[in-house]
Structure formats: structure tokens, C-alpha cells
Amino acid sequence: MKAYWWKFLAAGLVFYSIIGGFLFPVPELPILHETIRNTYFHIPMWFAMILLYVISVVYSIKYLSSGETKHDLLAVESVNVGIIFCGFGLITGMLWADVTWGEPWPNDPKLNGSAIATLMYLAYLVLRNALDEEQKRAKISAIYNIFAFPVMIVLLFILPRLTDSLHPGNGGNPAFSNLDMDGTMRAVFYPAVLGWMLIGVWITTLRYRYRLIDWEQ
């Protein structure tokens, strides 16, 4: 019980954010209207993805210094789950964009950046398949993972800020400021972010443990 209290927390927070997200009052804004509720689902996906990619790069660095297969397995499973969260982030974002911006894929730097970052992590998985020898695969893919991480940061956080973007917080648009997020929204948004991050970590640990048993046999 003591070891897995955070799994209950994760499930509780996500349940709370779903119920609260659909039922609690939200501010009425011109274009967004009720779609503002997507904030509780779209953005936490990206937070979870970033967290998983960070975990992955940390374990890749650990692998290079320790050479333990465990670290490599955790790194690859984090990327696997991170890509799934990225897919959900893109899907929720496209649904949202279709309603508010008029088309599912507007030419927005943040959208393109996240698509390219996904390509990079898919390339990481392809690189793993290209290498047969276990040790070598772990090492070379860890190196590529660390190499790709700063590029991902540039793509998602630096380039969109340089150009005009439809996303808040980019191209001179304000980030989540007091204007569009009131107290009730924050009360749902932050638990949602935390909940989805924990869910991501949970899925990763499950996959990692499964993989570890597979590897030990």
C-alpha cells in the first residue's frame, strides 16, 4: 500500500479532472466557448510526454555511465509511452484546432515542431531495430537519444517563440495568464496535469517491468 499510493492518487486526480472538466463552470471567451474545457485534456498530454522524454534522457545518461541493461530498458519504454502521449496530444489538439482555428492542421510552428520531434523519436526506435547486438544497440541508441533531446527542446520551446504562433505563450501571445484562466480552471488544470503525468509514469513502469521479466528469461 505504501509503495503504490501514487497510483491511487493518479487515478483519483484523472477522475476528478474528467468530472470537474466537464461539469465545473468555465469563463466564457469569444472563440473558445465550451471548447476551453479541452485545456484539461490537451495540455496534460504534452506535460506527460515531456516528463517521459526527460526520464528517458536521464536513463540514457545513466546507461552510458553504468552500462546496466535495466537503464536502457527504462529509457526505451519511456520513449514508447511518450510517443503514445504525443499521439493523444496531437489528436486532441487537431480536434480543438478544427473547431477554433478552422482546420485540423494549421501551419503553426508548435504543431510542426511537435510532429518533427515525433519523427526524431520514431527514428530512435528505427535505429534500435537496425542494431542487432544488445550492448551496442543500447549504447548507440542512448547516444542518439541524448543527442536528440536538445534538438527537441529547440523545436518545441525556442522556435515557436521566435515566430508567430496560434498557441498561447508564443509569438507575443500571453501564456496562461490571469485573463483566460480563473481560479476554478486552475483547480482542475493543475490536478489534471499531475494526474496524467503520474498515469504516464505508471504505464511506463508496467511496461518496463514486463520488459525486464522478458529480458531475464
Binding site: 526524431m120 527514428a123 534538438v151
Partner: peptide, 17 residues
């Protein structure tokens, strides 16, 4: 070892930004 394809796959995402 299989440099050709892999080189393109690995380098495009890094070069796009």
C-alpha cells in the same frame, strides 16, 4: 552498418530546425 537509409532518417529531424 546500413548507413544510407539510417543516415537520412537520423539526420532529417535534427536538421529540420
Amino acid at each position: 552498418n546500413n548507413s544510407g537509409t539510417l543516415m537520412a532518417i537520423l539526420s532529417f529531424p535534427v536538421l529540420i530546425p
